[in-house]
């Protein structure tokens, strides 16, 4: 098994964090993992993306040029990365911010209204966790508990209070694609 996942959006949406949580959870499940960010003279609102590879064999190239799964959080990301998805792959897009339909007919497409769901829960900033929940429900790559543990570890003791709303977001995201 080797899943190459691309997560893209704008800076501030938490796309790098989504990738790190997947990687950490994968590591705790004893998978081979690799997280690779785009880096450059970027700023909040600018382009941000990262590639995550989860595998059960040592990982070769750390680049995710042709993802098996693309998680696209805004319109420019859809325009840029939709063509790169491996045929037969999966595309999840944030339909709250993307007002066009993806064009590919050879990949499975799921619209997740991440921001709308997040606002309904009570905090627009957990839109990324909504998407992560949807992703995980669809791919079944990781136990939800592992993702939550990874989040707990990343937030640290000082931000334990943020766990419940993030957990709610993960669950709501999973339910949205059920």
């Amino acid at each position: 098994m080797e899943k190459r996942i691309l997560i893209a959006g704008f800076g501030g949406q938490g796309v790098l964090l989504m990738g790190q949580l997947l990687s950490k959870a994968g590591m705790h499940e004893d998978m081979e993992v690799c997280w690779m960010p785009s880096y450059g003279p970027e700023m909040r609102g600018g382009e941000a993306n990262c590639g995550v590879i989860l595998a059960d064999e040592p990982i070769g190239s750390p680049l995710v040029a042709e993802p098996d799964v693309a998680i696209l959080m805004n319109r420019p990301s859809l325009d840029k990365f939709e063509p790169s998805i491996t045929p037969g792959g999966v595309l999840l897009y944030n339909s709250s911010l993307i007002d066009v339909e993806p064009k590919r007919s050879d990949v499975k497409i799921y619209a997740v209204p991440c921001n709308d769901i997040a606002v309904k829960i009570g905090n627009a900033r957990v839109a990324n966790m909504v998407m992560l929940g949807a992703f995980n429900a669809l791919t079944n790559l990781l136990p939800m508990d592992s993702l939550l543990d990874a989040l707990r570890q990343t937030l640290g003791a000082g931000k334990e209070r943020l766990i419940p709303i993030n957990q709610q977001a993960l669950t709501a995201g999973a339910e949205s694609v059920a």
């Binding site: 990687s23 993992v33 997280w35 690779m36 880096y39 750390p62 680049l63």
Partner: peptide
Amino acid sequence: DGMIGQMMEP
């Protein structure tokens, strides 16, 4: 190279 510096692995 820049990738070794920027990538995360266990």
